[in-house]
Design a protein around this nucleic acid. Sequence first.
DNA 1: CTAATACTTAAGCATCTCCTTGACTATTGA
DNA 2: TCAATAGTCAAGGAGATGCTTAAGTATTAG
Lengths: 117, 117
Amino acid sequence: MLKHDPDLDRVFQALADPTRRAIVERLVRGPASVSQLAEPLPMSLAAVVQHLQVLEGSGLVRSEKVGRVRTCRVEPAVLRRTEEWFAGQRTLWERRLERLGELLADETEEKEEKEEK
Amino acid sequence: MLKHDPDLDRVFQALADPTRRAIVERLVRGPASVSQLAEPLPMSLAAVVQHLQVLEGSGLVRSEKVGRVRTCRVEPAVLRRTEEWFAGQRTLWERRLERLGELLADETEEKEEKEEK
DNA sequence: CTAATACTTAAGCATCTCCTTGACTATTGA
DNA sequence: TCAATAGTCAAGGAGATGCTTAAGTATTAG
């Protein structure tokens, strides 16, 4: 218990920033250079590069430089793995509801048995 | 474009902290009081209360006080809505792959047509 | 009534985050 | 070659974050 997943830390931390989420939302539509990513963003290129470093640190984005252009793309596996964390939580929640439902059904049954006497 | 969702900001920000994620993971299994949540956590009760404020601010958790006990529970709708963000990104990614596949198929077709001449 | 319980609030502090500017390197088009 | 392009690196600053301790308020068990 209490084991925390530093990968998830970094992914959520990365996605907590609206600029970085915008970058991810851009990149799922296809790869882009640093300047292309920076173009619609209201900040310096250096700031965008820093955001990209955070995204790369989280594994959400990887990039490679060819000539003077760095091309960035999303890593869908990391996106999917994170989605699965939510699915896991939902499963636990739903299981609890089931148990609660069963319990309620049992109680009703007991009541009915009593009333039949 | 570039409209950022402050709700998602807060949710991801909330989930970026391992302590807060642990609290959510505890709460999907069922409601708990503040003290119960704090018990396994290596920090002061006040710190846990602060984490809970962040979680409530994000909508992930809601709580009500009865007597001197505050009972906390997850808000599954917010969890689900966040999961859907990922599903949306995945959809965009997959659509891009499809288009890429079609393009590739078209090119192959064109090549074959040329070769047939 | 009194003491213990279950928070709540506030102040303070070290650290991290997000951005800036300025100087720099490497590549490429004319 | 020389200037523009594309990105990199480092220092610094305002504000946010994640704790702490200390002092407070209700609520409840005895």
